[in-house]
Design a protein around this nucleic acid. Structure first.
Length: 416
RNA sequence: GUGGCUGUAGCUCAGCAGGCAGAGCACCAGAUUGUGGAUCUGGGUGUCGCGGGUUCAAAUCCCGCCAGCCACCCCA
């Protein structure tokens, strides 16, 4: 008999197995706890959105062109699996009338995101993010608050060796003038730039600053810095954010090359890296202000600020020994012989006080004991046909090896 | 999207100047008559990722595809 080829997981996605789940839950619980402490409420938005929402927000970037999971549903709607959370949360903020409640609206979301990337370390096609968004507030205090919240989360899961980079990228008022200065600076050396950078020079000059080409690094050093060309309002906002971080005793490095490629990002941008890391790829959390996003989605202009934390990467760095692993069941019921009805009844009696599993397999008692031991059960309940008739069983404590015959009805009080 | 490495038992892997498919762990049975952990004995559970080619003969060499890992790229 030829077996057909087993069907494996879709490329780039993975299962989170029971053994890994405790660390995963610990990261999520830390996110929920810290969100709650800062007054943020949970929101769940659909994994599916209109592709247009993502496209409008992502404009004509490569990311949207090549990395968006996009498909038509049976009704002919052009949909996408969300590649990030903020667009959907902002949509829900308006559709759910959160804009009519107390402002700002403080929200957090934990869930899967999807990007059609080529898989590699820390990068999956389905990955999980912890997102925090404060929508409807423009105060610099909110920028500092979400940075502090991100730091509190990372510290909360035991990650203390971190590097925080911050920058301001201005707004629609001052950025255009700065971009002109940047273009003027780079134009004379256009021929020295790489192909991507030459395209960016006219199309998206801000992105010249995060080029990683080694030979472009010296050129960057002489480029005008946007923080030297902020308008009065942006400069004041930027100064306030830094003052607030100082007073919160949060250490940061100003990185004038930390930018975002899309117009609706304004003012504050920040990223948290593990202490040792250098590459941008290793960011554990990144965020910033997006005062132009609501309008880009077609809603009234509304400010917002937030961040996205990568749960996959964070759990990879967490200390797994700090998370308690519990056995699947405290008690295992082992009938000696084919006594499935009786075994199920004994388990039912004990479940009020302990987690109970039953070994129904027609194996030797020895094999059942071995497997109960491997499971890590604290107790096993053993009985044969004769004992079943008398409605008694041997309760054995695994650590000491001592056991005692008891009526079934007394098991719960002994196990409690 | 580009490149490098890898794919053999449930798992981790050895075998690859072509010649009978292996080890450790896991698993099953037993040694120790009721019942675990330690030790010993016995048992191989396999379309050698898939498809094609070369050859008397392919896990081994060649081509294509798929998948995994890593880096580049990208990162809304």
């Amino acid at each position: 008999m030829r077996r057909s080829e087993p069907i494996k997981a879709v490329r780039g996605v993975r299962d989170i197995l029971p053994a890994e789940l405790p660390i995963w839950r610990a990261a999520e619980q830390a996110a929920r706890d810290v969100s709650h402490r800062f007054g943020y409420e949970e929101i769940v938005t659909p994994v599916l959105e209109h592709a247009e929402l993502i496209e409008r927000v992502g404009e004509d970037t490569d990311a949207v062109a090549k990395e968006l999971y996009r498909f038509d549903d049976r009704g002919g709607r052009n949909l996408a699996l969300r590649p990030e959370a903020t667009a959907g949360v902002v949509r829900a903020y308006f559709e759910g009338a959160l804009n009519q409640g107390a402002q700002p609206s403080r929200l957090y979301l934990i869930g899967p995101m999807f990007r059609y990337d080529r898989p590699q370390k820390g990068r999956y096609r389905q990955f999980f993010q912890y997102n925090v968004e404060a929508i409807g507030g423009a105060a610099p205090g909110l920028d500092a608050e979400v940075i502090e919240l991100a730091a509190a989360w990372l510290n909360g899961v035991g990650l203390n060796d971190l590097r925080l980079e911050v920058n301001s990228i201005g707004d629609a008022k001052c950025r255009p003038a700065y971009l002109e200065k940047l273009k003027e600076y780079y134009r004379p050396m256009k021929s020295q730039l790489g192909g991507d950078s030459q395209l960016r020079l006219e199309r998206n000059p801000l992105r010249l600053l995060d080029s990683k080409l080694p030979h472009e690094q010296p050129l960057k050093a002489g480029a005008p810095k946007i923080t030297d060309h902020l308008c009065a309002a942006c400069a004041e906002h930027w100064a306030s954010v830094l003052r607030l971080l100082d007073s919160a005793e949060i250490e940061y490095q100003i990185n004038p090359y930390l930018v975002r490629g899309l117009d609706y990002y304004t003012r504050t941008v920040f990223e948290f890296y593990p202490g040792g890391a250098t590459g941008q790829q290793d960011a554990l959390a990144s965020g910033g202000r997006y005062d132009g996003l609501a309008e880009a989605e077609g809603w009234p202009s509304t400010p917002g600020v937030g961040f996205a934390g990568g749960i996959d990467r964070v759990t990879e760095l967490m200390d797994t020994t700090a998370v308690a692993v519990r056995p699947a069941a405290d008690v295992v019921v082992l009938p000696d012989g084919d006594l499935q009805v009786e075994a199920a009844e004994v388990a039912r009696i004990c479940r009020g006080v302990r987690s109970v599993a039953v070994d129904y397999e027609p194996k030797s008692l020895r094999a059942k004991m071995r497997s109960a031991n491997k499971l890590g059960a604290q107790w096993v309940v053993l009985f044969d046909a004769d004992q079943a008739k008398r409605r008694v069983a041997n309760l054995r404590e695994m650590s000491s090896g001592t056991q005692q015959e008891l009526p079934w009805v007394e098991l719960p009080t002994r196990l409690a």
